[in-house]
Computed example of a mutant assay.
Amino acid sequence: MEQLKKLDKIKVAIADDLDFFRKVLVDIFEEEEEFIVSGVYKNGQELIKNIFAIKPDIILTDFKMPDGDGLYVIEKINEMKYNIPVILISSYAKQDNEGILECLEKGAVDIIEKPTEQSFKASFDLLKTSLLKKIRYIYNNCVVLNQVKTVESKTTDYIAIGASTGGTKAIETIMRDVKRLSKTTIFISQHMPARYTTAFAQRLNSICSNGITEAINGEKIKSGHCYIAPGNFNLIFAGDHIELTDASKQIVSPGIDIMFQSFVSEAEKTCGILLTGMGSDGATGLKKLHDHGAITVVQDERSSVVYGMPKSAIEIFIVDYILPLNLIAGFINSISQ
């Protein structure tokens, strides 16, 4: 599969109520060849009003400003399901921990401290270096939804998700935002003791748009449904039905490598996703899927509770997409039916 083709220039949108600081940011990006400033606004309301016209790759917004602050921008971006990484820039970062945490919880990918006019000369170089470094990293590791749709028009019939430490919360976050599916079916293997997987499936089913149940050996696969591997069993995709094999003697179970490898015959119709977790289970199976034409995704380091499993995959092959947790549901929606 072809790697994501980056745009010629990284398009940055800026919202800040200080004329002085807007000019500083514009000057920083105009000095760098790979950037273009697609829009400059005095507040968040103006930025959001023009968002579909300017189509930025990254948004830089002040944390506190009248007529639409940083939280307003993040919430509106979320409402529109328009997954653009948002970086907060603020001189209030140290004073308003609760406000900053709320922005981060709702999707801000980072925060940079804004220098005052008085301290500007002394801190300009540090600001510029830090800002450009963060934006390059975020752009290269976050796939914006509108870019995914342009580059990857392929849709999938099957999505296989594996997770371990930190995975229950990650899976809940993803599945809560996955649209109602008509054809694509989702299969999940989360390392978990047997006595908890039933309750986990029931909890997900109560908060998500799609039917989610614990898999049963031999049951026919229903399009648009989601299946959770039961504890002490490996979930095997067997064409039109599910097979469960004993995993009680495995160190970790349900087995993620085993589940991924069972989709090899349908790899070109499959997307494999490896989330947060300790160890390396899933890396080999994800590579095998990739080698047979599947779309492959791993959760990024920043949003992972433990980066072991995603890192193991990245170390043995070139994964198609490395995504922060808050963009994975949008990605699934873009390739699902």
Rank of each mutant, 00 (worst) to 15 (best):
V109P: 00
D157P: 02
N97G: 12
T185A: 08
N97C: 05
F233L: 05
E219R: 07
T150E: 13
K9C: 05
G70L: 00
S182R: 12
A294Q: 01
S304D: 11
S182F: 12
P324M: 08
S223I: 04
Q147I: 14
F317L: 10
Y82N: 02
F263A: 01
I10D: 05
D27P: 03
R203K: 15
M175E: 02
F52T: 06
S182D: 14
V40I: 15
F237W: 13
K81G: 07
F263P: 01
P115I: 15
K11V: 06
Q45I: 15
G218C: 04
I228H: 01
E266P: 03
L181Y: 01
K94R: 12
G70F: 00
F21E: 09
Q261R: 15
F260A: 09
D125R: 10
I228G: 00
N326V: 14
A294V: 08
Y137M: 09
Y41E: 01
P310D: 07
D62V: 08
G282E: 11
G211S: 12
D177Y: 06
L289Y: 09
R22L: 10
Y139P: 04
N43S: 05
M192I: 12
R203V: 05
P115C: 13
H241I: 03
I236L: 08
I318S: 12
G279R: 11
K269S: 13
D17V: 04
L323N: 07
T173A: 12
T129D: 08
